[in-house]
């Protein structure tokens, strides 16, 4: 049977992708951002993940305002990096585990999560930046070392789904994965955040204390954390900080008992606080190694 063994929380700041693509990660501004992912890349290799289930949002790149699905599951064979206005990122096309994706699509709807099925979709920095920071530099001619199932969440037009809904969706994703016969090790990513505001006169807001309590409670108090009202993200973590609801999908898909095995936090990358955490299911520890 397929299993979700671990979760990764990770910011997906576009400038991080630009820094990798331009080869400037060793500059003093960027060095402390990337230092925190060195251990993560080792960890990622050790997991030998077959599939990454990657929760992210599109930033008005692939989805325009004509259609705004709250949850859209990537079910097509592959997903090419999108042109976001500067040309597509020079990273590999993402390949799906299409049979598992269609299984999850069917399971979720019957489990009363009425997701949108995407049979054709490009992906923006929300998906490619977490891949790059966790797997390291790749060119268009390389391949990502594992398959990826994208779940795209609306966090642009208010309201995004509630943290509670996201947490419970994580549980439904877990049920779907565990009802799949093939033996697969699945790692789930929840991406976006941490505190940041990109717009208008309050742009640049960063709330380190708030971000840190979020990271702490992800391990120790996830259910109460998932009840955080939207207005608290907007006020305390900036208007774009509300992206963090996506981390609850990741947390919901894990066991109640997890161990934090890695954390990284740095301000700034461009306008944003970079946050990153790795959580392992205690009972699955060591199984993939």
């Amino acid at each position: 049977m397929a299993r979700i063994t671990a979760g990764v929380g990770c910011s997906h700041v576009p400038a991080i992708g630009v820094a990798m693509d331009q080869g400037i990660t060793e500059q003093p501004y960027w060095e402390p951002v990337f230092e925190g992912f060195e251990k993560s890349r080792e960890w990622m290799k050790e997991q030998k993940a077959d599939v990454v289930f990657l929760v992210y949002n599109d930033h008005c790149t692939v989805f325009d305002a004509s259609c705004i699905p709250t949850f859209a599951l990537g079910c097509g064979p592959e997903f090419a990096p999108a042109d976001e206005g500067w040309g597509p990122r020079p990273v590999p096309v993402v390949k799906n585990h299409q049979v598992l994706a269609s299984h999850i699509a069917q399971s979720l709807v019957l489990d009363e999560f009425d997701i949108t099925v995407m049979n054709e979709m490009e992906v923006d920095h929300g998906l490619t930046v977490p891949m790059s920071v966790m797997f390291g530099d790749k060119t268009v001619d390389d391949e990502w070392p594992c398959l990826v199932i994208p779940l795209c969440v609306n966090v642009v037009q208010y309201p995004p789904p509630t943290g509670n809904r996201c947490y419970n969706l994580g549980k439904a994703i877990r049920r779907a994965v565990e009802s799949f016969d093939e033996d697969l090790n699945v790692v789930i990513f929840g991406t976006g955040g941490m505190s940041h505001q990109l717009q208008y006169k309050r742009a640049g807001l960063i709330n380190k204390e708030w971000d840190e309590q979020f990271l702490n409670r992800l391990t120790s108090d996830p259910v109460a954390l998932s009840q955080t009202p939207h207005v608290e993200y907007l006020r305390e973590a900036g208007s774009e900080g509300v992206e963090m609801v996506m981390w609850h999908v990741m947390r919901g898909a894990l066991d109640d008992e997890v161990e934090e095995v890695h954390r990284h936090y740095h301000v700034p990358a461009s306008n944003t606080a970079v946050g990153h955490i790795i959580l392992e299911n205690v009972k699955d520890q060591g199984m993939a190694k």
Binding site: Y29, S195, Q197, L198, Q199, Y200, K201, R202, A203, G204, L205, I206, N207, K208, V267, P268, S270, N271, A273
Partner: peptide, 22 residues
């Protein structure tokens, strides 16, 4: 962001490097 906040690029960038807007 430098334009929207009226701070200009250098001052805005410096604010971010210093930990952002409280």
């Amino acid at each position: 962001a430098g334009l929207m906040t009226g701070m200009g690029n250098d001052a805005y960038r410096a604010m971010m490097v210093a930990g952002g807007r409280s």
